[in-house]
Write a protein that binds this DNA or RNA. Sequence first.
DNA 1: CGTTACCTGAAA
DNA 2: TTTCAGGTAACG
Length: 281
Amino acid sequence: MPELPEVETTRRDLADRISGRTVTGVCFVAGGVSPARELGPDEFTDALVGRRIERLTRRGKYLVMHFADGGVLVLHRRMSGNLLLREPGATLDPYTRATISLDDGRELRWTDLRRFGTWRLADTPEQAIPQMGPEPLEDAWRADDLAAALKDRRAPVKAALLDQRRVAGLGNIYADESLHLARIHPRRPAGSLAPDELQRLHQAIRAVLNRALDLRGSTSSTYMDGMGERGTMQDEWRVYHRTGAPCAECGTLITRLVVAGRGTHICLKCQPPPGGTDERA
DNA sequence: CGTTACCTGAAA
DNA sequence: TTTCAGGTAACG
């Protein structure tokens, strides 16, 4: 899915453009699973129409639309969801599953090829968002916090990075990219990292996420920002989706393996396997 | 802990 | 035809 940088890019694109607008209509495209799983389309529409959008925030990979009455609409894009703001009469976007009409005539469109994305209405964000770890781009997040989150864990460090309860917002792309930048093998037990490795990983996560934010995220197939444009971070991927291509650091060909059930991309020379044993794809 | 399920393709 | 897919929840 869109990970932290992609969700934050969308938030920045849309926040000022939809703040102050009132919802005038909601339409769910018929057929298939609706993003609003908990309420029927009519009920959901009734619950949204007439409410004024006050601001748009983000927590991990969740987008939160705050209404003037204090309630929230919490969106999660999962694998292929996008939230686009379109002008009146704009041509239809592929895989549009739902639309929210605004009082300036513009329309928010929810596109989602795989239909995994979810919308939840709640009184507060906490009601709709599960417990989640710290935001890695906040100043308050230090190497010590990462160390504490990984301490005593025997799970592969990559699995720990993908666990939103330890750090919020990392997904498969930026976990792989961060581990390569930090020169750490994804199968290393999380609790086995030395202090200097934790330091490097902490710094790498920040560097990778900040660079991705500068480049407005990564687009490989379905991701788009709030205006429907592509990000360009994919042009700087070090390992992700680069199986068989040379590592920019040492020229070794990038290997693909499966860790924590996810496709994982590494340079075996830059990221030596744990235990000295040979590791293959 | 790892695996499966959810859904619909796109790419090999 | 088969594999892979940016995420999570549920299951064993």
